[in-house]
Design a protein around this nucleic acid. Structure first.
Length: 583
RNA sequence: CGGGGCGUAGCGCAGCCUGGUAGCGCGCACGGUUCGGGACCGUGAAGCCGGAGGUUCAAAUCCUCUCGCCCCGACCA
């Protein structure tokens, strides 16, 4: 902080050693900028958002843009320190890349075109197209293309902790989804598939250690590689109601996947020996309406949904109790949109609500589960449904998994019941393969003198999301309860009465002593009433509080209180250091 | 981008329907009394009522446009 101290010099010479700057600087509450709020700002909804605002960790500048105040920044630096340690442990080398990128590099991989409004674009003074980096595959690969020449140069793992910019369609939930955010992104460069597999594995293991050390409850799940390209990818998910994703989990066999691609089978229907017959169903259009009318569970119905793809109309069929999964369908028929009511009438000759799969000339894609037993579906004429429809006899289709996995479905691996949980995505790992290296000509010569594209992986972690997830998973009605590893301070000292000379004397003494032990101590030396100090301490959430009260001090005692359990033990003043060390 | 909601003092809100001197709680400043779970009394500072235009003798209030923020959805490399 003060440039003249040796700590300051260390910081400027070696920015990665954040530890030194963290342990220096101000630790007195009266001097620190910790603007706590008694009431939550009205536009905060997520628990982590409310608490981080109230406890003085962050402030919002504009939609999706946040300022990290001293406490918030300390937390991020704690998280970053863990990230760096674990990345270095697997051979990652930290570098720093520009946020401002020339368009050409992105044009070469096709993403300049492929990515839409989510990329911030601008021109420099000479009219050259530029963009703000939303990720760094292109630039990392560009670097590799110029510098890597031989298999002897591989493998490499390069990483950075850098600002990313994305013009999000909808920033939300405080620091969970922002337009500018810090990201640890690493990239592996290998000469063989086996080597990539190893890079991928050590990243997965490092990620487990990172999230574990940060005190999170989390899981690794299969994910959809999406437009990153490549075949394999996993996401690291922290369960929380504030999350935006859902994962399907099988507790029996361990299967877990984002619902975007999770496979599941519905609970089987009972067999009925229905004869095929038309049933009058006046004004009953939706599955729910017909189900109520016929007193038959929705799972015995076929839901027919007409969509318009680039190659014409497609009829998608799912079971009545299922939801069509747009992404799964997209993989089969490409981009598509729902048909309008008039289109349904034109193409199928019947109004929506009474559609059945029989007798149409258009492409039909059906969920696999519809192959069993008999079903009820629309009769292709107004106000009638048909009972006793059988797949392949009465209609044919392309069979695929196109439904959304839901809680209660059957695990296709082990037949147990699946659960679905809401989660925050805190990290992801992708096997990119050669998509970027081919596009940017990042080639190397192998042992045989053959020119080959470098095989890549990319791996991301959002430090702010770790912080938010930690708050979501660790709080109570009074405030945050930080995991020790990422708390802005190790201990908070609470000298309750700053007008009592004994209290101040002991507090100053303990403050020096604990700091001397290498602990980061926040001392609430404000001339505030005890109640205010207690409330703020609980809000801010430092895991250990040391309470110095006048009465206890007369007997030579102070209290050491656990923020999580609220349990306090009285300890002799001279035993405090020992006791705190053992926590 | 579609749907919904909200912009009034630093924060939380009332006032708007039915136009007529801008209010309450907390916070903040000063003085006093208090002092182990967000104290009490007194005094005080603080507002382009998001912005622009219009209607009117008169607009926080009515009308039009616009900007911003939040929530749901779509999107999410």
């Amino acid at each position: 902080m003060t440039g003249k101290s040796s700590i300051g010099h260390q910081y400027y010479r070696n920015p990665t050693k954040t530890y030194f700057i963290l342990s220096g600087g101000l630790m007195r509450f009266s001097k620190m900028f910790i603007p706590t709020l008694r009431e939550a700002p009205a536009d905060a909804e997520a628990v982590s958002h409310i608490l981080m605002l109230r406890a003085g960790y962050v402030r919002q500048l504009a939609s999706g843009l946040y300022i990290f105040l001293p406490l918030g920044w300390r937390v991020l630096n704690k998280i970053n320190a863990v990230l760096k340690e674990e990345m270095e442990a697997i051979g990652g080398q930290e570098i720093s890349m520009p946020v401002l990128h020339p368009a050409e590099v992105w044009e070469q991989t096709g993403r300049w075109e492929a990515i839409g409004e989510e990329m911030f674009r601008l021109k420099d003074r000479s009219g050259r197209d530029m963009c703000l980096g939303m990720t760094h595959e292109e630039i990392m690969t560009w670097l590799a293309s110029r510098e890597i020449r031989s298999y002897r140069d591989l493998p490499q793992i390069w990483y950075q902790i850098q600002t990313k910019l994305r013009d999000e369609a909808r920033p939300k939930s405080g620091i969970l989804r922002t337009r500018e955010f810090l990201m640890k992104d690493s990239y592996s460069f290998d000469s063989t598939e086996e080597a990539l597999e190893k890079s991928y594995q050590i990243h997965a293991e490092a990620y487990h250690r990172i999230f574990g050390r940060c005190g999170l409850s989390f899981m690794m799940v299969e994910s959809d590689p999406g437009m990153m390209g490549g075949a394999t990818s996993h996401e690291f998910m922290a369960p929380s109601p504030a999350g935006e994703d859902e994962v399907a989990i099988c507790k029996a066999c361990g299967y877990s996947a984002n619902v975007e691609l999770a496979a599941s089978a519905p609970v089987k229907n009972q067999t009925h020996d229905w004869a095929k017959e038309e049933i009058h169903t006046p004004e009953k259009r939706t599955v729910q309406e017909v189900s109520n009318f016929l007193k038959l569970a929705p799972s015995y119905f076929i839901k027919s949904i007409l969509v318009i793809s680039e190659k014409g109309p497609v009829l998608a069929l799912v079971r009545g109790d299922q939801e069509l999964h747009e992404k799964k369908l997209s993989k089969i028929i490409g981009p598509h949109r729902p048909a309008q009511k008039t289109e349904v009438k034109e193409i199928l000759g019947v109004e929506a609500g009474f559609i059945g799969p029989m007798g149409h000339k258009i492409r039909i894609v059906a969920d696999e589960c519809l192959r069993d037993v008999l079903y009820v579906c629309g009769a292709n004429k107004p106000h009638y449904h048909i009972r006793g429809i059988m797949a392949e006899r009465d209609f044919s289709a392309e069979w695929h998994d196109i439904h959304t996995a839901k809680a209660g479905d059957i695990c296709i691996g082990c037949s147990s019941t699946l659960e679905v949980a809401r989660v925050i995505e805190i990290g992801n790992i992708f096997k990119l393969g050669t998509k970027y290296s081919e596009a940017l000509k990042a080639l190397f010569l192998d042992e045989n003198g053959q020119e080959k594209p470098i095989i890549m992986g990319s791996y991301g972690i959002g430090p702010a999301r770790i912080a938010a997830a930690a708050v979501e998973q660790n709080h109570d009605k009074d405030g945050i309860i930080w995991p020790k590893s990422i708390s802005p301070f190790d201990v908070e000292l609470l000298p309750l009465n700053m007008n009592d000379s004994k209290t101040v004397e002991v507090a100053e003494d303990l403050y020096k002593k604990l700091r001397g032990m290498g602990l980061e101590v926040l001392m609430d030396d404000r001339e505030e009433r005890a109640g205010v100090k207690f409330k703020d301490a609980d809000l801010i959430g430092i895991p250990t509080q040391i309470i110095l009260g006048e009465k206890n001090l007369k007997e030579g005692l102070v209290e050491i209180k656990d923020r999580r359990t609220k349990e306090a033990v009285k300890v002799k003043v001279h035993e405090v250091a020992e006791k705190v060390k053992s926590l």
